[in-house]
């Protein structure tokens, strides 16, 4: 059962020097309730792909559909977490989360906000301002804000890329816990192979210029995954090899 379906997607950006082909014929099925990692070098169009799914980029050829309905713009069925937290500095943590809510009564807003702050482990920081939070905490608030509308899909655009190595590992565990608690589809874009394998049910490998899907690799390791297990390292080596095979050969000749 494929929930999020991308068919022959082509995206061009027009620049002063002419049109640049950012994505060239992407075909991808993202299963419902699964965790899909998209990994690739910078400039491979992986963020553009995610922004198209989010509805932030229009003007593409091909098809993107969620549950059979074509994606034409932003919608609350898709939440998004950006690399920077994008919290409004003049609002408290709880006001930032409530910023996302449109319909409900004040009482419902309070309940939804506190429920989601608990989910990300920040219940006691409701009254704090973003400037008082560490990078990891701010990103947790951003996750709570993206989830508060109960989207079907959570899109994560290198959300841990700006965090230090320790915080990053904690946040990776946290996002898995949240994924398991919320039963939603997650799509993570990253340049970190280790992160892609640790989190994903499937890892989509993209090549750059133009952006194409190179391969889709299912990862069936049981969770919690052990990053030092031979199987984990095998998968990582395989992905690493397919990205850097040419570079490694050159290196070997040089020696």
């Amino acid at each position: 059962m494929a929930e999020l379906r991308i068919k022959t997607l082509v995206k061009r950006f027009s620049q002063a020097s002419g049109a640049v082909l950012a994505l060239d014929g992407i075909d991808l099925d993202i299963p419902s309730g699964g965790f899909t990692s998209i990994v690739g070098a910078s400039g491979c169009g992986k963020s553009t792909l995610l922004r198209i799914i989010a509805g932030l980029e229009g003007d593409f050829a091909g098809e993107v559909s969620l549950d059979g309905r074509p994606v034409g713009g932003p919608g609350l069925d898709r939440g998004m977490v950006f690399q920077e937290h994008r919290l409004l500095p003049w609002l408290t943590v709880e006001e930032n989360v409530a910023f996302a809510l449109n319909g409900p009564t004040p009482a419902e807003v309070r309940e939804l906000v506190s429920e989601h702050l608990e989910l990300v482990g920040l219940g006691s920081f409701a009254k704090a301002y973003p400037g008082q939070l560490s990078g990891g905490m701010a990103q947790r608030v951003a996750i709570a804000r993206a989830l508060v509308n109960r989207p079907r899909v959570l899109l994560l655009d290198e959300p841990f890329g700006a965090l230090d190595a320790m915080t990053k590992i904690i946040m990776q565990q946290e996002i898995l816990r949240i994924w398991e608690a919320e039963h939603i589809t997650m799509v993570l874009v990253t340049h970190d192979i280790d992160e892609a394998v640790f989190l994903g049910d499937q890892v989509v490998m993209m090549s750059a210029r133009p952006g194409r899907v190179k391969a889709v690799l299912p990862v069936s390791l049981p969770r919690p995954r052990d990053r030092s297990s031979p199987h984990f390292i095998d998968i990582r080596r395989h992905i690493f090899g397919s990205f850097f095979a040419e570079a490694e050969e050159t290196f070997a000749y040089a020696i």
Binding site: A54, G55, L56, G75, F99, A100, N149
Partner: peptide, 15 residues
């Protein structure tokens, strides 16, 4: 970046 965020969250114009 905040304009994009508001689009993603379908924040009404007034807010």
């Amino acid at each position: 970046r905040f304009v994009e965020l508001a689009r993603i969250l379908e924040v009404p114009r007034r807010r």
